[in-house]
Design a protein around this nucleic acid. Structure first.
Lengths: 235, 235
DNA sequence: TCTTGTAATAGTGGATACAGTGATACAGGC
DNA sequence: GCCTGTATCACTGTATCCACTATTACAAGA
């Protein structure tokens, strides 16, 4: 493994975890694809063992599925499961913003505006990095809640749907960032009403779900699919 | 390992996971206690490897903490962290009951009453199994939401605070089950108003947090502690 | 031709062996 | 006596090896 990655990763296992996670997040490993420890280990120049443990970890986070004696595949989410993740995320981010309210001083609000501006710029520039900016915007709000476990859970949910968001944003003609209306969230925060901000955040998160779901359902029947999907297909 | 446990656990790793989890849940492994793979492996008559992977899994769930090259200890939660878990659980269980509302028919309501009755009986019988009944009551409501990932997350949160609940219920003179007021939740469900049920469930969950926190804070200073705690003590 | 049995192969889970790291205890210097 | 350097030891992380499982391909029979 490289020296540079050794700097950031304390152990080989951590190195493997980050590498595989990265490949799943950016869509390099497609859902349903089989992950063979031996192969990955060779690519990363380490033995199977740390790779196995990294896969284990990813399995706990729901990004891959391990069936005993039958290997490991990248977890494909059904449309229903994606919906469920959005439902969970909506209440968790609602909670986060409610708890964060007391910490929104002038400086924090200014930074929030910065995030909005960066998102807008990324959107106008073609949207390549829009998703990252969007996640950063949400992450910033969550971070102000001062609740580590809450922040971690929300981040995990963002990662789980990221591959699907990515293909959606890539294929959709009218970019999602035009219709997302994050400014409503910021407005709600500005009112200082915690209950209201929570409600708005919930609705904001849930607004994306049906549109993403519609896209994925349409894609499921699209001619462009590489192979016909079985009845219980996981997109 | 025993044949009986081999029946339920597909792999040695799973066997180890269940065994360690059980020991943590019932308080046999105290927070802060060091878990040495070698030792546990000997007890379970297997090698270090599956134990390691089981500990890894428990670390992801937040029940143990693994520091690279420095071993594994049972995760002690601070009072703040316990509070945080209750906050998260309150919104997740609120979501669960809201989503479950359409499925509460006469049969489901009857079963809910059964759960209440069983809890009451367990409480009167000394409260030994009250915690289990209480978790079953919540799990039943969650199960009707039909959201697997949501159910799993809530269950994990119940497990994380279980050891603390256990010592609290064991030490407290006036049993908690007398003041818990689960019937309010059932009443709210009976109204059929999903929003209202969500609110009531949230408040119900959050009602426990400050009392448990107060108990644990008091216990931190109690003479009965085995050893004086450092400043950043994790109870 | 289709089905079914069987052999070969790839891959998984687990055990053992080895190297590297952190902790500890002891000895020597200040 | 206290601090510091060092050597030892316990334990962690990784690699390699072995046994077992599942899958696949092929062949023989219906």
């Amino acid at each position: 493994m490289s020296f540079a990655s050794r700097m950031t990763a304390a152990t080989a296992q951590d190195e493997a975890y980050r590498a595989i996670l990265q490949d799943i997040r950016c869509g390099r490993h497609q859902p349903g694809e089989r992950l063979i420890p031996e192969t990955i280990a060779r690519e990363l120049a380490m033995s199977r063992m740390p790779v196995r443990e990294a896969l284990q970890r990813l399995a706990n986070e729901g990004l891959v599925v391990i069936r005993p004696n039958r290997g490991c595949v990248v977890a494909g989410l059904t449309v229903e499961e994606i919906f469920e993740l959005f439902e969970i995320r909506s209440v968790l981010e609602g909670l986060a913003v409610r708890l964060a309210m007391p910490r929104f001083d002038a400086a924090a609000l200014a930074e929030l505006d910065d995030h909005l501006a960066r998102m807008r710029r990324a959107g106008e520039a073609g949207g390549a990095d829009w998703l990252g900016r969007h996640q950063a915007f949400h992450a910033y709000i969550c971070s102000l809640s001062g609740r580590p476990k809450l922040i971690a859970q929300i981040a995990a949910l963002h990662i789980a749907v990221e591959p699907y968001m990515r293909v959606w944003l890539h294929h959709v003609s009218q970019p999602a960032h035009a219709t997302e209306r994050q400014d409503e969230v910021v407005e709600a925060i500005r009112t200082g009403d915690a209950e209201h901000a929570e409600t708005v955040m919930r609705e904001h998160v849930m607004r994306t779900a049906p549109r993403l779901a519609a896209f994925l359902r349409g894609r499921g029947e699209a001619a462009g699919m590489q192979a016909p999907l079985p009845a219980d297909a996981r997109l």
